[in-house]
Design a protein around this nucleic acid. Sequence first.
DNA 1: CTTGGAAGTGTTAGTGACTGACATATCATA
DNA 2: TATGATATGTCAGTCACTAACACTTCCAAG
Lengths: 214, 214
Amino acid sequence: MANEGSTLRERKKAKTRAALIDVSQRLFAERGYIGTTLEDIAAEVDVTTQTLLRYFDSKAQLALAPLIAPLEGLEHHLEDQGRSVDTLSAWRLYVQIEAEEAANPSEATTATYVANLRTYHEWVDKDPALVASLSGVERRLQQVLATAMAQDAEVESDDLHSTLVAALLVAGRRAVWDRWMARGPDTGSLVDDQLAVVDYAVASLPRRVLEATE
Amino acid sequence: MANEGSTLRERKKAKTRAALIDVSQRLFAERGYIGTTLEDIAAEVDVTTQTLLRYFDSKAQLALAPLIAPLEGLEHHLEDQGRSVDTLSAWRLYVQIEAEEAANPSEATTATYVANLRTYHEWVDKDPALVASLSGVERRLQQVLATAMAQDAEVESDDLHSTLVAALLVAGRRAVWDRWMARGPDTGSLVDDQLAVVDYAVASLPRRVLEATE
DNA sequence: CTTGGAAGTGTTAGTGACTGACATATCATA
DNA sequence: TATGATATGTCAGTCACTAACACTTCCAAG
């Protein structure tokens, strides 16, 4: 568990950050989202609420940190791969890695973390603000994805086809993920389902069909 | 413009509600979302902020009222049509009506209203909270739509195919709408584009393809 | 090892969205 | 016109979030 941050300062930061997530995760699950104040969380981690807000932009961002992290990771992944690989391949790769990681967690991803993921829908779905926040993050991801694919295809950035494919990919990822979290631990293969959805989206939405009607 | 509410009380309510939307719309456009306080809006309409909050659940709901209204109308439309018509037909009909209304507004829908729609992206997209709120409403709509379609097809409510079709329909509606708002007044037919996207979604996502991989 | 500067944290004071309880005013209806 | 319902105002309060400033902790260069 010892973080491998080169400097002491970085290790400390990573530690408090992790603590904030862990504690908040537990409190949110116990007392609910609105039933837990930032002060409660900060007090238990032994920092001030202001410090907490230096780590996370908002209460929602803290609550959704474990769900937002992979989404932002995906954004970065798409930016990094940029020119070297086409966007769809980058997406497929990331979704696969992400699913494998959740299916059999490595030492980096603790079992507690995966366990927490499963309890998310019990308290996240209850609060409209949280649902909205998560949807907002997903929407931004969708736009990044659509723009990247439009660039690949060398079409205008608000290309309708790219937008729809991106929407299908993001929604599909979320849907498979939700189902996996809601149902029992090992109902079907998470990895297989994720990849299947990508194939389905790509195969089902040929550009030609849309252009004909446009 | 005189509201045809049967009772005086209802007419008053409708009037202040409309005033709140109009004033807020203008102020948000002028000073931005965060730059406008609820107090500013309430003062100009000559009510207290508490009264304002009795009309709208939150600042975001007020700001997005003109965008949320049709979405909720769509939800009700789907519920009403319920058993009489299949969900997809209900969706198609509503999207069509909605687009026609915007393309050539009737006396009920004022021209100012349509003009406001076009300036939305200038200040809504700037604020993550607003983007999130709107995305949240759309997500709920997507779920309602997916559930309804799953019932039509007599499959489990978390059916993956229904979810994906719903996602595509909602995203497509939004995309066509955004493009219409962003580009000039009459670039292409809004109605035709909306209907084309519905056809495209239905034609492109056959259940078989997904079932084969599931 | 020390020192200068950067980075993290605490403190304080404040804003603004939102809630609840209660009193008051306004309107519908009998 | 009287009575109950509904809308609004008033007051007090919570909480997320911001900004400015002082202080402590840590890194890195000399």
